[in-house]
């Protein structure tokens, strides 16, 4: 399933945040969205799910399998959210409900969207926790988020996002709040899930290192516009746009290291 964004403009409270964004994320691909803070990366991700703040005005198209999400009535969009498009947020410490068990957070939307029974939902939840490599998933489902470390929580958040087997995953800075040592594990997990499940992943990050590690395509945003887009190898090694070069030069050392073997 392909997610196609074309000519997306968003203004919030009179300020124009996005000025005609074009993006395409294909099944089984990780599309990295880079750019400095305030360039509109996160707003792009939120717009796909219709989670922009009240009073936002949008124009353009966000297409999923020929359906325009922007033109969809609220109720139908709510049926797409979580079920077909899921999202992973930046800080797993705040994106999980602190007072509800991991099991409930893994199963509530599953039961709502897929009509799965209590018992089966629980079994699936255990399976999902195993898939994101949470140790002893059978007991983990009955615990609360604060009983896990940050990296484990982000794995749980990813499991929550995958619960209804969505086709598109929007990951908004999923490793930014984590230790560097934990980051690599989360990125490997995302990459693996993308390959195994044929997920279309939109990976929002300001970190070009993260980008070079997992992305297939890379888009660079500046001031609400995509200024450059293309295959990772090309954008990160032979950038065409001046701004991309600035971003790359701001990295310490010799710039992003590309993995030796191309996939």
């Amino acid at each position: 399933m392909t997610l196609t964004i074309s000519g997306l403009t968003v203004s919030i409270g009179g300020a124009e945040i996005l000025r005609g964004v074009d993006l395409e994320v294909g099944a089984g691909r990780v599309h990295g969205l880079a750019g400095e803070s305030g360039s509109g990366k996160t707003v792009t991700g939120l717009a796909v799910l219709g989670l922009l703040p009240h009073g936002s005005r949008t124009a353009g198209r966000i297409e999923l399998e020929g359906r325009d999400l922007l033109a969809m009535p609220a109720k139908r969009l709510n049926a797409v959210r979580g079920a077909e498009i899921a999202m992973v947020f930046q800080d797993p410490a705040t994106s999980l409900h602190p007072m509800v068990t991991v099991g409930v957070q893994l199963t509530e939307h599953m039961r709502h969207h897929l009509g799965v029974g209590r018992k089966e939902a629980r079994d699936r939840a255990v399976g999902l926790l195993a898939k994101v490599r949470i140790p002893s998933p059978g007991t983990a489902v009955d615990r609360y988020p604060h009983q896990f470390s940050g990296g484990m929580r982000q794995r749980i958040a990813i499991a929550v996002a995958l619960a209804c087997e969505p086709k598109v995953l929007i990951a908004d800075e999923p490793t930014t709040a984590l230790d560097v040592t934990v980051q690599a594990g989360i990125l490997r997990l995302l990459r693996g899930l993308c390959d195994d499940l044929g997920l279309a992943v939109l990976l929002v990050t300001h970190d070009l290192g993260v980008m070079s590690a997992v992305a297939d395509e890379v888009s660079v945003m500046k001031d609400g516009l995509v200024v450059e887009t293309g295959p990772r190898g090309q954008v990160l090694t032979e950038p065409r746009h001046a701004y991309t070069r600035v971003l790359l030069e701001s990295l310490p050392g010799d710039g992003p290291k590309l993995p030796q073997e191309e996939r």
Binding site: S95, L96, H97, V160
Partner: peptide, 26 residues
């Protein structure tokens, strides 16, 4: 304004679940 409320919306939960479980309870 908490992230987990936004996350609950992103899960496509019905409005009453978001209101009672994610907003009122905390």
């Amino acid at each position: 304004g908490q992230d987990y409320v936004r996350a609950a919306r992103a899960k496509g939960l019905p409005g009453r679940v978001v209101l009672f479980r994610y907003v009122l309870r905390p």
